[in-house]
Every structure is written in C-alpha cells, then in structure tokens.
Write a protein that binds this DNA or RNA. Structure first.
Length: 270
DNA sequence: CAAATCCCCTGCAGGC
DNA sequence: TGCCTGCAGGGGATTT
C-alpha cells in the first residue's frame, strides 16, 4: 500500500520521465470512482500540455502543467505509476500518457481503483489537499503532542489521520510505534511528554529510512522504473503476527484498531 | 466537535 | 475443481 515513502519514491523516479515532455496522446478507461475528473475532460485538457513540476504532499502527487492547471494523483491502495512497458498493460491501466518525443510513455495502473485522478483549474484548491496536516517526513514533536490532547482514540488511529500528519499509513504507523516502544492501542491523550517526541522522531526515522530503501513492496508496490522496494525486509512488526520480535523474541501480536490491522510486540511496546 | 461505521474495488487465501 | 466468504485498506461520507 503506497504511503509517503512509496509516493516519494514514485515522485523521484517519475519526475524525470514526466517533467518537460509534451503530452501527445492521452488514453483513459471508462468513467469510474477512480476519475474525479471525467476521463473525456482529462483527455482534452492534458493533450498538448507540458508538466513543469511534480511535487508530493502527504500521499498526493501534484503535477503542475504549463497551462496553470494541476493534475492531482493519489495511488490509493494498489496504484502504481510506471514507465510504459515496466508492468503488464492490462485492464487495470486507467490512464496512459504518450509524449511527442518517441520515448516510452507513462501509465497509471490500479487494480482496486482506490486511486484518484483529478484536474485542478488554475488557482483551484483541492479540499483533499487543504485538509492535510503537516508532512509526516518532518513530524514535529510539539505539533504531535498538541494533536494528542483531548483525543480518546488509539495513537495508531491518530497517526493514520491525514489531518494530523500527512503521509503515514498502516505499515509505517505500526513500525514507528515499535521504534518508539509505544503500543498502538494507547489512548492518544494518555501519552506522556516523553512519549510523543519519541513517536514523532520514530515517524521521521522510519519514513526516511523507507525512502532510502526504495519503499516497501509488500502488496505489489512497483517503482516507476519497474524495480521493487526493499523496506519490507527491514520491517519489525507489520504483517509479522506470530513471528519473533527482532529485539526480544516475543511473538508479534495483531489486533484491529479503527478497522485496520495493527501489529506490535507485547513485550517491547508499553 | 469527536468518534464510529460504511462503502468504493479487486485479488487472493481459506473452508468445504 | 469450484463456489463462497472474508479480508486487505486510503479516505471520504454518513451516522451516532
């Protein structure tokens, strides 16, 4: 599942294969939940445009076009944006861009269609982006501590709230809480002055390291150039139920919080 | 306002 | 082998 590290790795590899190239042809599938902007409109508005910049906000990618419009992209659960030819071109390819230079195009493939594509008019703001909190890569201890006050929800659930920190998803929330030695079930408001900075630091650390490793390819994440990430080999708790904790050997436990599976070491995390 | 629940979608694992 | 059920989850909408 693409979270901040996977989206950032996607941005870094995608930028060189997108920026500065002129879109010659746009192919789309039929209208669906996936298209916040109707595919016919996308085809019309994107044709002939040049992407000038590609930035990331939380788990969103924003491509600035030479028309002043912006293309908003979200990978959802199973989305992947790759160089044409790097993955199968099957019924799950919803958007494909061809350019005027003869080099391979770019495809946005998504099995479950939880991904999103939206064209923003010049100066138009996206409600989805506006509600995002500060980027999780620079998680601030004071900000996180303040965000926990008055919140009865588990800290794990709070970390997944994109309005609190933008970019944390299920894998890295579990991994960060392991590094901080805090149980995911702990009430946010009950965390101490010492624990919230530890969690913020762990969030930054795990995200930075995951980017360095190229992301996690646990559920099919593929980099734009076709490679796989390596962080899945470094994870401590996520999807390791019953396996021994790397620190103490205790069996990793799984529980459900906010409809999402959560993993932790009952011995190391308190 | 906060918190809980439902739903969008498809592939796959597990049970029989 | 095939059918059915449940699960995976980002995040918005709806309900409590």
């Amino acid at each position: 599942m693409p979270e901040l590290p996977e989206v950032e790795v996607t941005r870094r590899q995608l930028a060189p294969m997108l920026v500065g190239r002129k879109v010659a042809r746009v192919f789309t599938t039929r209208p669906s939940y996936f298209f916040l902007t109707p595919p016919a409109t996308l085809r019309r508005r994107l044709t002939g445009r040049v992407v000038e910049r590609l930035e990331r906000l939380g788990k969103y990618l924003l491509a600035d076009l030479d028309s002043g419009e912006r293309l908003l992209l979200h990978l959802g659960m199973t989305g992947e944006i790759v160089r044409e030819g790097a993955v199968d071109h099957d019924r799950h390819v919803h958007l494909r861009l061809e350019f005027d230079d003869g080099r391979p195009g770019v495809v946005f493939r998504d099995e479950r269609k939880f991904g999103k594509v939206q064209l923003l008019a010049a100066g138009e703001d996206s409600k989805r982006v506006l509600r995002l909190g500060p980027d999780a890569l620079s998680a601030d201890a004071e900000h996180l501590h303040a965000a926990t006050r008055g919140r009865r929800i588990p800290i794990k659930t709070l970390l997944l709230d994109q309005a609190v920190l933008a970019g944390v998803g299920n894998i890295y929330a579990d991994e960060a809480l392991f590094l901080a030695r805090v149980r995911p079930t702990r009430r946010a408001a009950g965390l101490t002055r010492a624990e919230t900075p530890a969690i913020a630091a762990a969030v930054r650390q795990v995200l930075r390291r995951a980017i360095e490793a190229g992301g996690s390819s646990i559920s099919d994440f593929v980099q734009p150039e076709g490679g796989e990430g390596g962080y899945q080999h470094e994870r401590h708790v996520y999807a390791r139920e019953g396996e021994p904790c790397g620190r103490c050997g205790t069996a990793i436990r799984r529980t459900v919080l906010g409809q999402r599976s959560s993993h932790y070491c009952p011995s190391c995390q308190r």
